[in-house]
Amino acid sequence: MIHHLKTFYTIWSRDIIRFSRNRGRIVASMATPLLFLFVFGAGLGPAMSPLAGGNLRFEQFMFPGIIAMTVLFTAVFAAVSIVWDREFGFLKEVMVAPVSRRVVALGKVAGGSTLAMFQGLLILILAPLLGIKLTFEQVVYLLLLMLLLAAVMSALGILVAARQRSMEGFQVIMNFLMLPMLFLSGAFFPLTGVPVWMEALARVNPVSYGVDPLRQVALRESVPEIFLEAMRLNPIAVDVAVMLVFGVAFLVPAIWLFSKQD
């Protein structure tokens, strides 16, 4: 058991150390979300019909979606990096060590999730700039929701990457998995009043269940409850439950595939 903990700690802390050494990358990875937030926000905002009875600006609406986007990308990239790492990196050394590969996979999920949560937090800090009021309690809730979404996405990333032996499929993952999940999650526009097919897709999309509670919590102090309820997909408890189900559904096969000997 102690050996398992040591293994887990090794895999997790390696990700944390690497992340903290690479400040340039932290800043660079904030560029895309900020671009989306301010360019789309300023550009599309005036064209949108008033949100929440005029109580909500478009940037404010998009803000939780941008956090979800940051979490999604960071978590999936961190997980998919195992393809490279297993052939040409430290993970190769891990694969021949007398350690449980299940624990390695869990450590990887934990590492990627921690990083994703931290990147999300860096965006969250901008909330006052957008006029979004946040209490300490909200911040704690938001961090927990980010962590959960990140864990679900890391597990999905490991699942996709577990049997992959080259980076060639990477573009495919990007185009056919991550972007559709992001666009159909309600991150950039409300899912109330969209065509039925889109709503159906959004309802089977795990990211929707991450964006929805993030928005409900983040805007709690800024938007009257009636409007917030009209905009939501599900009550927060339902969102969290669905995310947990997705998480387990991804994690179990991900660990199994990762542990399998070639």
């Binding site: 150390i17 990196g89 190769k92 050394e93």
Partner: peptide, 13 residues
């Protein structure tokens, strides 16, 4: 113990 053909060190560490 194994020394792989491809480097398996973490260069950031």
């Amino acid at each position: 113990g194994i020394i792989f053909q491809d480097p398996s060190l973490d260069e950031e560490l």
